[in-house]
């Protein structure tokens, strides 16, 4: 058992939390959403983001035990668990991003640490450092084509793939969990800028903004 001290960054007691997009006033833009939108933008705030680092073999064992899915070993791979709520993405040969529903990050980190024991690894909770924005709709791909030099054609970017790349001159993780949906993982300091970029880029296709629910 590793003797790393852990703390729950989102304890059960009510603590005010703000998404990185709190300053962007999505509610105001949501009221002006297009009636028949070509692109729908939705923030999924307060998800648990964990960075997993270490050897693939040792991590794979622990992840399969705790989450019931195997660690994606192929570059750019993105896998979801049985109910589609939890995802693991390959970021580099020794680094993976785990995204889980709100409130699960702490217990998951604990269970992974227990499963990994004395192995050589690192788990970092980066939930406060980034947020997830979903793009859907028939023109979503065209918004991405304007924003990133990465080839997002379905032939090159099938569902189940995710890459870290330049997005609107900033850095973002672009993921495609299924055929209809694109996800952007935005760093906190870039979030407002990227959101404004997306609003500007999506305007011509008819843009709808949905709030994340809290």
């Amino acid at each position: 058992m590793s003797d790393v001290r852990m703390f729950d960054s989102r304890p059960a007691t009510a603590v005010d939390a703000e998404s990185p997009l709190a300053v962007s006033n999505l509610a105001e833009r949501a009221r002006r959403s297009a009636a028949d939108p070509g692109v729908t933008l939705r923030e999924r705030a307060f998800l648990g983001h964990l960075i997993l680092r270490g050897g693939a073999i040792v991590l794979d064992e622990a992840v399969r035990e705790v989450l019931g899915v195997s660690l994606p070993a192929r570059p750019g791979a993105l896998v979801h668990d049985a109910d589609g709520e939890r995802s693991i993405q390959w970021l580099s040969p020794d680094e993976w991003l785990l995204i889980v529903p709100e409130g699960e990050a702490y217990t998951l980190e604990k269970r992974l640490r227990d499963a990994l024991g004395d192995a050589h690894f690192a788990i970092v909770d980066v939930s406060g450092g980034q947020t997830l924005v979903e793009l859907s709709g028939p023109r979503a791909r065209e918004v991405l084509m304007k924003s990133t030099p990465y080839d997002v054609h379905p032939r090159h970017f099938p569902a189940g793939k995710g890459v870290t790349t330049t997005f609107a001159k900033a850095t973002a993780i672009v993921r495609r969990p299924d055929e209809e949906l694109w996800e952007l993982v935005l760093r906190r300091s870039f979030a407002d800028y990227c959101y404004r970029w997306l609003v500007d880029a999506g305007e011509e296709y008819g843009l709808a903004v949905e709030e994340s629910g809290r």
């Binding site: 750019g76 030099p149 990465y150 890459v163 330049t166």
Partner: peptide, 12 residues
């Protein structure tokens, strides 16, 4: 060689 695909120069 790690991502096993071609990327734009601005990423490097």
């Amino acid at each position: 060689p790690y991502c096993e695909e071609h990327r734009e120069e601005e990423e490097f």
